[in-house]
Design a protein around this nucleic acid. Sequence first.
DNA 1: TCTGAACCTTCCCATGATGGTAAGGTCAAG
DNA 2: CTTGACCTTACCATCATGGGAAGGTTCAGA
Lengths: 138, 138
Amino acid sequence: MGVMSIGEAAAASGVTAKMIRHYEDMHLIPEASRTLAGYRMYSDKDVHILRFVRRARGLGFSIKQIADLLGLWRDQSRSSARVKALALEHIAELERKIAEMQTMKTELERLAHCCHGDHRPECPILEQLAGDSPADAG
Amino acid sequence: MGVMSIGEAAAASGVTAKMIRHYEDMHLIPEASRTLAGYRMYSDKDVHILRFVRRARGLGFSIKQIADLLGLWRDQSRSSARVKALALEHIAELERKIAEMQTMKTELERLAHCCHGDHRPECPILEQLAGDSPADAG
DNA sequence: TCTGAACCTTCCCATGATGGTAAGGTCAAG
DNA sequence: CTTGACCTTACCATCATGGGAAGGTTCAGA
């Protein structure tokens, strides 16, 4: 598969054709060369880049971060410290989001635990949301 | 504060004026009545609703879910079982997202741990993303 | 050679919740 | 009457992704 259509590159990389075009539009990946008819053409090297992007997305990196990672990947004189710094930043962000959701989950579990969950209308979950119980305001 | 402007309602509820208008546009909250000049007017009851929405958002409920919760809150003949079911669904969704991010975090920590993070270019993080190491494909 | 399926192209719209800004009207205090 | 703070609507942006329409291309099979 030296030269591929966008559909073949999509199948080979795990990135949808739709997203490949989108990544090109936003300059995350290089502009693809075209056939006479205007069809995009991809090489194995392009697929390699697309797989890199897909794996980075799988780890939750943003497009902006992936652009940075691709730059470092290309840069033979990079320092691994810069890559590691990017990773650690992302880890911190993940931790922040996990903690936020964990807090929500814990609170919801507490409320759900208090709720009888039967045919009757009395519901501590709604009471809490309504602020009938004391606690916070605006 | 029997009757308030949108700014006052925002301050009293913790929901920005911007979002109050947005919630009205999407029919999450009732359409506000207007002054002769076209300014929206809010009552204490409206602020109560807005606070409900804000607290529900704070627990991570989606607008769609909050619409359902508001319906149940209004419905004096609701069963608490339905409220609890909504809450449990949301808890499950939170768990799913937390697990997903936890997986990312764990993998990234493993990679970051392997990376020297010094001036040299060798970097297991990039190698993994590039797929130089074995593992998955597209 | 014609035809149809399967592909490609671009362009626009939608998601979900939120923020920003611009252009203009209103109101209250000075 | 002016000024500043507020309100109005309308549009655009975020972030990553998907859907669909309208139209061109390619290739295989009849």
